[in-house]
């Protein structure tokens, strides 16, 4: 089984978000980037578990510039066999999906795993687009994955419960919480990552469809207001006039 896991960088969750160039660009300065947790904790680890059980290889793929090398090394340290970096600054989801789909067409894989979303732009788009471009099946928000020959059984969280689906390989999935338990790399893995191959692939030229006009930060949260339990009138008036929820 050949697994391809899509990984992207995302700002560490404690990052203070700021913008530059008249609010049209994200300010990268002093930002620490991590492997997008959904990609690392769930998609990558589940692929590794299945590889350990059934055999095969796990390749990670990233569309990004040299500043993504660190997250690629981490994925290799956790256990991926090799990595591919498509040498381009990602523009939007379609751009990323086209790069990955192009690579998959040229290199046969049985399963492409993405995280359910990145924790920065929360697009949830790349997986579906890759599947569309490849004309493969797509299972989104999968919280479990079992493989039996070329048949895969997945659980999906749906409103109020779960859905179990069966799909034939090759297909694309997006992984949600529950699919696996995060793994911390060990020193052996970190040392092994030094010599694992990272192929740098030139960008596949394609049109981009979107342009970002501007970013905006949410309004700062105001402090909590305490209302005494017997003062229902004040509470109602605050909810009505200030919070405007009733």
């Amino acid at each position: 089984m050949k697994f391809l896991v899509c990984i992207s960088k995302a700002p560490d969750t404690t990052t203070k978000i700021a913008f530059t160039d008249n609010n049209t660009k994200f300010n990268n300065d002093k930002v620490v980037f991590i492997v997008n947790p959904y990609d690392e904790w769930y998609a990558l680890v589940r692929a590794l578990e299945l590889k350990e059980k059934l055999g095969g290889t796990v390749t990670v793929i990233n569309v990004g510039a040299t500043d993504c090398d660190a997250i690629i090394r981490k994925a290799l340290a956790i256990g991926a066999d090799d990595a591919v970096r498509i040498d381009a600054e990602p523009i939007d989801a379609m751009f990323v999906a086209k790069q990955i789909a192009q690579y998959v067409k040229a290199n046969a894989y049985d399963l492409v795993l993405c995280g359910k979303e990145t924790i920065d732009y929360n697009g949830s788009e790349v997986g579906g687009m890759i599947a569309g471009l490849l004309d493969w099946g797509y299972v989104s928000l999968a919280s479990s994955l079992e493989l039996n020959g070329d048949l895969a059984t997945l659980n999906r969280e749906i409103a109020g419960g779960y859905e179990t689906v069966v799909v034939k390989t090759p297909f694309v999935l997006s992984a949600a919480k529950g699919m696996a338990e995060a793994r911390i790399p060990n020193m052996r893995g970190i040392m092994a990552a030094r010599t694992k191959p990272v192929a740098v692939v030139p960008v596949f030229a394609c049109e981009n469809y979107t342009t970002i006009l501007s970013y905006e930060l949410p309004k700062e949260k105001t402090g909590v207001k305490l209302v005494s339990p017997d003062n229902v009138d004040e509470l109602v008036s605050l909810l009505h006039n200030e919070a405007k929820v009733i």
């Binding site: 090398d69 660190a70 090394r73 981490k74 790399p185 060990n186 020193m187 970190i190 990552a193 030094r194």
Partner: peptide, 17 residues
């Protein structure tokens, strides 16, 4: 280096857990 930071993140994650 990236490796120094990976070693640190690994040790930190292990310690926190």
């Amino acid at each position: 280096t990236d490796e120094h930071k990976l070693i640190r993140d690994t040790a930190r994650a292990w310690v926190k857990e």
